[in-house]
């Protein structure tokens, strides 16, 4: 399964919740599969999906799922320490670990080599960390949303992207409609 296949299984689980989605192909694929006001597409800031998600979870009580990528977490590794030290029971971080920089042509990341992001997350003090197969991801995310613990899920999937259009929605529209969902 590639990222887009994982997303297909994930949609019934996350569509009613606040989702912050990673730059590039992940946001574009989620947008093409299930565009929703409750999705915040982070269109240009590699590495910050998890940070935006954590800040959002700290600020209000609704469940928050941040979808990130292995490459993006590697570029902002400090985020795992911040998450580990500021647990928010309503926060789930889903790291789509395809072992590559998918959006830019599937160049390998260190997470696909010797680096174990789940072990790093644990060492950073994160409460609950799981490595799951692509097939088991939706079930794990569902359980994480239901739980009152910060959960980091590292979903091991294959490298690959599907051809989908770029997101043309005005950023203020993305942000405003998302904030309306937060307030709802």
């Amino acid at each position: 399964m590639i990222r887009n296949d994982v997303f297909k299984t994930l949609i019934p689980v996350i569509s009613e919740h606040l989702v912050v989605c990673n730059i590039g192909a992940p946001s574009q694929e989620l947008h093409a599969l299930d565009d929703r006001a409750s999705n915040f597409y982070m269109l240009g800031t590699m590495g910050l999906s998890s940070s935006i998600g954590l800040g959002l979870a700290a600020a209000q009580d609704k469940p928050v799922i941040a979808i990130d990528g292995d490459g993006s977490v590697l570029t902002n590794l400090g985020t795992l320490a911040t998450i580990g030290n500021n647990p928010q029971g309503n926060f789930t971080l889903l790291i789509i670990d395809n072992g590559s920089y998918g959006s830019t042509g599937d160049q390998p990341t260190y997470a696909g080599m010797k680096t174990d992001l789940a072990a790093v997350a644990k060492a950073c003090g994160a409460e609950t960390v799981q490595t799951v197969s692509a097939e088991d991801t939706a079930e794990a995310v569902k359980a994480a949303i239901a739980s009152d613990q910060t959960t980091i899920i590292v979903s091991k999937c294959e490298s690959g992207n599907v051809k989908v259009p770029v997101i043309k929605t005005n950023p203020i529209v993305i942000r405003e409609r998302f904030m309306e969902e937060v307030r709802r």
Partner: peptide, 13 residues
């Protein structure tokens, strides 16, 4: 990273 946290906190009200 801090600005990411701030963006999230802002959207959270």
């Amino acid at each position: 990273e801090g600005m990411g946290l701030c963006a999230g906190a802002f959207m959270g009200g």
